[in-house]
Design a protein around this nucleic acid. Structure first.
Length: 621
DNA sequence: GCCGTTTTCGGCCCGACTGTTTTCAGTCG
């Protein structure tokens, strides 16, 4: 909805003043944490955390919807939570939250982050010893003042000291590429062991969350002993957190925590489901199992007795399945792709037979965003083109930076013309090889061509870096914004809208400008951006570079729902980075996006036809 | 706190590992 519509009458709060979904979620989680420490009924605290999660990933701006008088129906958000969200949306504050916070020192919640410390222990530390922050806890542990408490010993004190030290060094979450490297390290080490049939990453990495905290790995083996032994003694292991007969956890040197679990051959289906999660998805499955008389755990489905307890003795019955699909089928559900398992509507969709036909990496016919050493890439045009061709793509768009981005050696119009000649020469060779049958076997039927594009800078004053005459000579133009990031929402939005409305601009690259863990999103009026992109046919990019993943899943899902097309791009600056396409595709899958909404699932002919139509005079406002 | 054609009250998902226990609570995923 246009922001200008809000400016007249007795002004409801502007979007910028409303708490975001993430802020609402943070407050509700904090209430849940505080109630845990307070010793409140566990189901009540769980309800707050669940409501926080649901609101945090809701597809609409929840506070906005409350202010506008049409709060969304969200499973897990009942009357009490709705009233609190309404108060937060209306006033920006929540009396209940503030009263609760006033009961405890503000720093007490920090203690929950120490591994091994839960709400019960934190409460005990505070009430018996007055410990309310990490420094006090460290001092007490170092002085040996904890060992008198129930459940505390000298060893616990040391574990707490170690845990506090670890907090400082290990608070960063991994990006997808780093997680993949750690997975590979362990998988390679276990692969050759006797009895090991496979090693599978599970958890949030398998669901392709944009950042990964801990890694979960499953090893299918007849005997867990050797695998766990090898795992806990890997050279990269800094410490072993725990180790049993079924599972073990380690921390890598300056790296992540990794959990390894054993799954029994022939029974992997429920293990994979259990350890892939998400927790919320699993809870829904277990509820469904229980309704049907079975208790679901990683081990399989155990038959329940009349009283709701698991049957034991001669009446015991455990159903196991080799594959996830079979385990889902036992619950009369179709297979649900890991990227969808967030309890964000996938169970309902599965029941109603309307699960999306998700985009696959193989559906991509090309890539609209890449660089060479002509600007800030590291490899020659030919090397990049050859690598793209060997991927079996029909096109790669070379989009070196435009002139004003001097730090990236942006191309002058003269160098653009030179580059065009280089590309034409390469394409002549590709055509000759295809005619002669000497092109790589991966080459698709329509052949491979390197398309000439550019990454066009949207300058701080809103002007574009090249004039229309030059822009019209490119096969495809992606526009992006790297400078003047701190302007007001209205200024930034106007700059992006200017690019969207230019008939020669085909794609807006990494629209939010974020880098995960480094810098925040641009402050844009997103609803206006989506609407204009949809009406002009300008494509919004899902950039697959792991620090970007931009658009985000939530934004991409919203954009497509209002009629936008997206492009899944690598933004490769060297050959190895073409693999970013896989990360980008996984984010599109998380956003429930299907192939028709992704422009680069189209053939080269269809892509160029789309661009030509959108470039036609009068096509745009 | 949430939720419901087995319920508007009384339930609410499951198991491994750890540590300090003499049979189990707390934490974690």
């Amino acid at each position: 909805m246009p922001a200008s519509d809000q400016s007249q009458t007795p002004a409801p709060p502007a979007d910028a003043d409303l708490p975001s979904n993430a802020e609402l979620a943070r407050i509700l989680h904090e209430i849940g944490d505080l109630l845990e420490i307070k010793g409140e009924l566990v189901f009540k605290t769980v309800a707050y955390h669940r409501a926080a999660d649901v609101i945090g990933r809701a597809p609409v701006a929840v506070a906005r919807a409350y202010v506008d008088g049409h709060p969304p129906a969200l499973a897990g958000v009942g009357r009490a939570t709705a009233d609190k969200v309404a108060e937060l949306a209306r006033t920006g504050r929540l009396a209940y939250h503030e009263a609760l916070k006033a009961e405890f020192p503000a720093t007490l919640l920090d203690l929950l982050n120490v591994p091994g410390l839960g709400p019960k222990t934190v409460r005990q530390l505070w009430t018996t010893l007055g410990i309310a922050d990490l420094d006090a806890l460290r001092a007490a542990a170092a002085d040996g003042r904890l060992r008198g408490m129930r459940g505390m010993s000298v060893r616990t004190e040391q574990a707490i000291l170690d845990g506090i030290d670890g907090l400082r060094s290990r608070d960063r979450r991994m990006l997808l590429g780093e997680a993949r490297d750690a997975v590979q390290l362990v998988a390679d080490a276990l692969a050759g062991l006797e009895g090991v049939t496979r090693v599978v990453p599970a958890g949030s990495f398998r669901r392709r969350r944009e950042t990964i905290g801990d890694l979960d790995l499953l090893v299918e083996t007849t005997d867990a002993g050797p695998a766990i032994g090898r795992f806990t003694t890997l050279p990269a292991v800094e410490s072993v957190l725990n180790q049993g007969t079924e599972k073990a956890s380690v921390e890598l040197e300056r790296g992540p925590r990794i959990d390894l679990m054993r799954m029994a051959p022939g029974a992997a289906g429920t293990y994979l489901i259990h350890f892939t999660g998400s927790k919320a998805h699993n809870v829904r499955l277990r509820e469904r199992a229980r309704d049907r008389g079975w208790s679901l755990s990683e081990k399989g489905f155990a038959r329940l007795a009349e009283d709701g307890a698991v049957r034991t003795g001669p009446d015991a019955e455990l159903r196991v399945f080799a594959s996830e699909a079979e385990a889902y089928a036992f619950l009369d559900l179709p297979f649900i792709e890991p990227e969808l398992r967030e309890d964000s509507g996938e169970i309902e969709a599965a029941l109603e037979g309307r699960l999306p036909n998700l985009l696959g990496l193989a559906d991509l016919q090309g890539d609209l965003h890449s660089h060479s050493d002509w600007s800030d890439g590291t490899q020659p045009i030919e090397v990049m083109a050859e690598a793209a061709r060997r991927r079996g793509h029909a096109y790669q768009v070379l989009t070196d930076h435009s002139v004003s981005l001097a730090i990236a050696r942006g191309l002058t119009p003269e160098r653009v013309a030179m580059q065009a000649r280089v590309i034409a020469g390469l394409n002549r060779r590709f055509a000759t090889e295809e005619d002669a049958g000497t092109a790589p076997p991966e080459t698709p039927a329509e052949g491979f061509r390197l398309l000439h594009g550019c990454e066009l800078e949207i300058r701080a004053d809103g002007r574009l870096d090249y004039d229309d005459a030059l822009l019209s000579r490119f096969d495809l133009v992606v526009a992006s914004l790297h400078v003047g990031r701190n302007q007001s929402r209205s200024e930034l939005t106007a700059r992006v809208l200017g690019a969207i409305r230019n008939p020669h601009v085909d794609v807006i690259a990494h629209p939010s400008g974020r880098k995960i863990g480094v810098r925040d999103d641009l402050d844009l009026d997103w609803d206006v951006i989506y609407a204009e992109a949809a009406s002009t046919g300008t494509v919004l990019e899902m950039n697959g570079s792991p620090p970007r993943l931009d658009l985000s899943v939530e934004r991409a899902r919203h954009a497509v729902s209002v009629g936008c097309l997206v492009a899944v791009d690598s933004d490769a600056h060297r050959v190895e980075e073409f693999e970013h396409l896989a990360w980008g595709a996984s984010q599109a899958r998380r956003a429930w996006i299907e192939s028709p909404s992704v422009i680069n699932t189209r053939s080269r002919a269809a892509l160029l036809d789309y661009v030509a139509r959108n470039d036609a005079p009068g096509r745009r406002a």
